[in-house]
Design a protein around this nucleic acid. Structure first.
Lengths: 141, 141
DNA sequence: CTGGATCCAGTTTGATACTG
DNA sequence: CAGTATCAAACTGGATCCAG
């Protein structure tokens, strides 16, 4: 690109970002970071099936994950973050002892659907990505 | 959920993941992590406009980001990762001195489109998310 | 200009133990 | 059972210097 073109391109990009509602404290960056972390998308997947108690959810995540189990502490942290953004609700029963359950809000259900679409798209391209990686890795000597 | 229901739910989730092509080394987790990091989606946005040289790209990213500029080192790292997965190409001219340009492959162009859809969805819900956060933060005493 | 090498700081995740 | 506190480990991003 030439200097004048770059200036034009930057202006166009800035305008496009503005038109899509980007501004400096928009939550897109943070939510994308959340979806990109180690556990949140899997938590959404499980909670999409109904309401789960903390310990149940923890055991289930361990079953579904190829890697090691989520720690109690990290599960609490992730649920708090999802709850704060309005994607997950936390319900405490009046029983003795009280039962704490988690589930998806309507917004969380929609988020899960949208994220799922992207994840499925990536999985569908997994062969192409693996091929690209193999080619890159073998070319670097 | 009751114990039997949990068993059923886990089985259903595992089957669903398998049906969607999940397996333990699928790249979805890594690509989502990439899209959730600090710079990759912005890099895709800029590269979607054409071919850019390293230094041009770095300056442009600085213009578009509210935060501080990307470091030279991190830009190289991010471009390498995107290139390895087949989303970005790297072209070296035969000139002296050689010019190095980066751009999107067809796969990268598609990824950008898919990711953009999710980001736009989140931005469209930004008011709801901000409201949820304010309510959560004020309720926690 | 591109980008590798070092060194460093902040954040995220995990292990363990403890409280109500 | 749910959640917190503390400590340790790993990872990410950044600053600086240097080489082709």
């Amino acid at each position: 690109m030439e200097t004048a073109q770059i200036r034009t391109a930057i202006a166009a990009l800035a305008a496009e970002m503005a038109a899509h509602g980007h501004d400096r404290d928009d939550p897109a960056r943070e939510v994308m970071g959340l979806l990109g972390d180690r556990w949140s998308t899997l938590i959404l997947l499980v909670l999409a099936t109904g309401e789960w108690r903390h310990a149940e959810l923890r055991r289930t995540l361990a079953q579904l994950s190829a890697e090691q189990a989520i720690s109690q502490r990290v599960l609490t942290l992730k649920l708090r973050t999802l709850e704060r953004d309005g994607f997950v609700f936390r319900k405490i029963s009046a029983d003795v002892p009280p039962r704490v359950s988690y589930g998806l809000t309507p917004l969380g259900r929609d988020l899960h659907g949208e994220a799922r679409r992207l994840i499925d798209w990536i999985n569908a391209r997994a062969p192409a990505i693996r091929t690209a990686r193999a080619s890159f890795d073998s070319a670097e000597d």
